[in-house]
Design a protein around this nucleic acid. Sequence first.
DNA 1: CGATATGCTCGAACCGTTTCAACAGCCGTC
DNA 2: GACGGCTGTTGAAACGGTTCGAGCATATCG
Lengths: 344, 344
Amino acid sequence: MTAPMASIKDVASRAGVSVGTVSNVLNRPNLVSELTRGRVRAAINELGFVPNDAARHLRRGRGRTLGLVVLDVANPFFTDIAKGVDDTTGPAGMAVIFCNSNGEAAREGRYLDLLEEQRVQGVLITPVGDDNARLDRLRSRGILVVVLDRPAPSRDFCSVSVDDRLGGELAVRHLVEAGHEQIAFVGGPWRLEQVTDRYHGGVKALEEAGLGADNLRRLDTPSPTVAAGRDAVSRVLGLPRSARPTAIFCANDLLALGVLQGLTRQQIRVPDDIALVGYDDIEFAAAAAVPLTSVRQPRQELGRSAAELILDEANDPAGHQHRQIVFEPELVVRESSQHSFRRG
Amino acid sequence: MTAPMASIKDVASRAGVSVGTVSNVLNRPNLVSELTRGRVRAAINELGFVPNDAARHLRRGRGRTLGLVVLDVANPFFTDIAKGVDDTTGPAGMAVIFCNSNGEAAREGRYLDLLEEQRVQGVLITPVGDDNARLDRLRSRGILVVVLDRPAPSRDFCSVSVDDRLGGELAVRHLVEAGHEQIAFVGGPWRLEQVTDRYHGGVKALEEAGLGADNLRRLDTPSPTVAAGRDAVSRVLGLPRSARPTAIFCANDLLALGVLQGLTRQQIRVPDDIALVGYDDIEFAAAAAVPLTSVRQPRQELGRSAAELILDEANDPAGHQHRQIVFEPELVVRESSQHSFRRG
DNA sequence: CGATATGCTCGAACCGTTTCAACAGCCGTC
DNA sequence: GACGGCTGTTGAAACGGTTCGAGCATATCG
């Protein structure tokens, strides 16, 4: 009933050699004679021996696993990142523990504790807040850290991010150029830097156009999800007539899809009555009821680069230089912001 | 530079007790006097001691991690399942290694090897094929197995699934009742039982209506993704006029969204020219260009139940009874199949 | 007062690997 | 034939916890 897993000892006795030799066959086969190697390999197969990673880990002091902590597993933006990570760590023989902080500091903390106990080699994380004390602590314990989807808090962390201010700027400039002056910004929670940066980028675009921050009205959401987007619609519509926006810029596509649903339910047409711009350009943005204009981020690329940085540091801790990679976002214009699309 | 992680020995010497006592404070605090317990706790805090899970694991023989292997991380259906799993394993202090087989047997195999090396306590898996030899092998090595989103191959595995034949039946019956007689089934790869079951359920509905399997024309796709759905459209349109379907039933929502995009590109209106039904009812189905009729599965529930089954077996291996839980799917009708919606 | 039970603590064995110093042959050299 | 250099192999010491029998006070009881 219970596990009769063969150990290296069983292999050794079956092959008539010492455990050290078996270990050598596994790790430095060139040190072992052809003949013994063959016998050991045979024994391994016959017994179906699979080395115990916990033991190896214990002895070596460090494991072959990484932690990936994201804000929302259900957000395709993050699963695309995860795919990118996986594509590069898999071939390197690393396992990834995929954790969902759900945007909650408490959950994030619990997962980081767990990853510490696992003595993971490194952590790729999109932090919930700006508590870099926690990141420092990981570091001081010898755990490699790469900040994902955010610039690192200091020069001695690696990070991979996309210029969110620029993204916000692109989105709002696009709307301003289409003639919009009253714009709503739907996003939150405000503690996420991604949200504030996108907002501030938007404000910058307005100022460049001679308008003010008042023209980008902030509507906070408790979370950046479809449901929160739906709920935000009533607040947009509840604004005094004078402040009624003609366009909405959402902090991500999930919110935008929710807003779109909410507006549709209220018989408000997009883009005719209100223009809509999302962020991330997830695959579903293009398939939406009204194809969504969105700010594209190189999602898989983000994951791949982050994984490469951490592998680089893992393989050569001494020679490694911390880098803060910043990608550029790109505006993808679709129907949801094309006022003229139907009119014209 | 390198990790000076405190070990249980450091804690012991700092608190002036033996390592055994420290271990007891951690695992059976009631055996330790109030006084010592305090001293040990203090030492733990001062040193920032975090137990090494690999060591514990090694001694105990089994770890606190589970593996979750799914067909596609980027499919919201599976991330919702993952959420369900996570919600129930997290509080139980278990870590989950989330693996993406991507529908490829080779990748699945590599991940299972990895999970074996990790000596995970259990594996929740949506298998790529029907190679239950591999599952048997996990079992024989003492690794608990729960089959996800599929009925177990035999009575001595736990499984949590949804009745896919019934789902296919519901979808096609709905179309038949709306007057459709030529229906295309877009799905694949054919090796996935989920795909074949949904197809056969559809055939059953046709037969009940006095029609034949010929009326459900199979169009295989290489993968159940948005891109594959888009590509399938040309094949639907390439069918001889006589066999031209008036409705399409897709094996999942990703395919359906892709098909919808493809049709729109060809200026074919849904549902007026062709009706469309998806499967899974992911969140984005309702937000699609044309809100998608779909067959809903209790996604998070699926994940939760699976996790509960595995925790149950882990906690009481002897008393555990293997169970095959089967949920019922539910048809959610939206605009994409409502021929009358616009006409009426 | 001695025997026995009770409450805490200790120390050592053990889990399955890796690593490394030591060593056994064997060969060629001088 | 002693010697040094290779090649392969061995055995034991870690790694960091858990577990358990033994030991030692102290309290309980007859």
